[in-house]
Amino acid sequence: MKPAQFSYIAPETVEEVLAALAEHGDEAKVLAGGQSLVPMMNFRLARPSVIVDIGRLAADESLDGISVDEGTLRIGARVRHRQLEHFPANGLGPADGPLGSLLRGLARWVGHLPIRVRGTFGGSIAHADPAAEWCIMAQTLGAEMVVRSSTRPMRIVAAEDFFETVFTTSLEPEELLTEVRLPVLGPDWRVGFCEFARRAGDFAVVAALTALRIEDGSIVEARVGAGGVAGTPVRLRAAEAALVGAIPTPAVFHEAGLAATGEVDPSGDIHGSAGYRRDLTGVMVRRALGAESIPTPV
């Protein structure tokens, strides 16, 4: 299938991108890596009349950089999945730690190699597939999205206010996601991830991401999130509550998994019934909690 007709503009500055978005409003779509947008255009599920390609913008630290600033990691929206996959160990210096491992490990779960070569981190976040690894990470760790437009001041949107439902965010048509900020995780954090998909490289049926801060042998902070169980990635508060204050043991992880199963309300589809996804959520949470490191897809 071929995309419907569209006009195309590839500005050289962010200001020109913002001007084009302001001019064309919801007729326009931003094209970055194109690995989600172009399939939808080829299916004609998306028929934007103007494509604003940000691929020709001059290199820009905000859009293309990965950096740490006072406990906050900034990832430019145009950073490709492949760059995160190959981000050097300790690439963030002392701040690398569990978050660096998580970024490198999760990147390998995003699609296949040719998708990771082109697709961008910000594109995945803005596309807002509820089963996408980066969206699950953003929701679970409480990311902040940096959003610019030519019509109002820059704003920062918390992940929970950003993801609205399937493929839908609180981005306005004239706005551009330029950067995502994540809290750096110190060495006392332990991160885990588990995903079940029907084939390597597919979107998850269900995936879970966990982060525990452990002090003197007890869990003092817990973040548990899942994708594939609702219109957006979700934080699993009951599972978190089952963990905080406990000593991390397989029995506690099992309890947290049961709590996760109890608090999600997925719908079923051809890949799995609602009950199956509910059970799977608990299993994914339990396995993520028990993981010694971020697993590889194969």
Partner: peptide, 27 residues
């Protein structure tokens, strides 16, 4: 497939494997 799944259209762009059905010629 023309939506990036099958990989039959894979070409190399600056040495990297890319789905040529998901890229526009103008890019």
């Amino acid at each position: 497939c023309e939506h990036g799944v099958c990989g039959a259209c894979t070409v190399l762009i600056d040495g990297n494997p890319v789905r040529s059905c998901l890229m526009f010629a103008v890019q």
